Amino acid sequence: MDDVERTVRTVLAQVLGNGLGTEDVDADVGLVEYGLDSLKAVSLLLGVEEALNAELGPDTLELRPLTVRGLSEHLRSLSRRRALA
């Protein structure tokens, strides 16, 4: 697990606040399966943006699949695009 994925898992666990630990999150399970609703999804994006100094638009929530792995890959692709610009 890389730093991006670890950060997404950590922020998700904090946002859910249901006792789920960072290591309990399966990177390939849909985030709605963990109880992520629209309000918590916005909190997840804001927390990830702050933690990784990234800019994520609301369309990020339309990623398919919306999983820790999918969001992490999206973040890494944004980082690569910024590096090329």
Rank of each mutant, 00 (worst) to 15 (best):
V25R: 15
D26I: 00
D26G: 10
D26N: 08
A27Y: 08
A27R: 15
A27I: 03
D28G: 08
V29N: 11
V29S: 13
L31W: 02
V32P: 12
V32G: 09
V32H: 12
V32W: 02
V32I: 12
E33P: 00
E33Q: 10
Y34F: 15
G35N: 10
L36K: 12
L36Q: 12
L36W: 01
L36G: 06
L36N: 03
D37T: 02
D37K: 04
D37G: 01
D37Y: 03
D37H: 14
S38T: 10
S38Q: 15
S38R: 05
L39F: 01
L39E: 09
L39H: 01
K40H: 09
K40S: 07
A41L: 14
V42G: 00
S43K: 12
S43H: 14
L44Y: 01
L44Q: 11
L46I: 05
G47C: 01
G47T: 03
V48N: 07
V48A: 09
V48T: 05
V48L: 07
E49W: 04
E50Q: 09
E50A: 10
E50V: 10
A51S: 11
A51Q: 09
A51H: 11
N53D: 14
A54V: 07
A54R: 06
E55I: 14
E55G: 14
L56Y: 00
G57M: 02
P58S: 08
P58C: 03
P58T: 09
P58K: 13
T60K: 04
L61Q: 15
L61E: 11
E62R: 04
E62V: 05
E62Y: 04
E62A: 09
E62Q: 06
L63E: 02
L63D: 08
L63V: 06
R64T: 01
R64S: 10
R64F: 08
R64Y: 04
P65Y: 00
T67S: 13
T67N: 12
T67G: 12
V68D: 12
V68W: 08
R69S: 12
G70H: 04
L71G: 15
S72C: 10
S72T: 04
S72E: 13
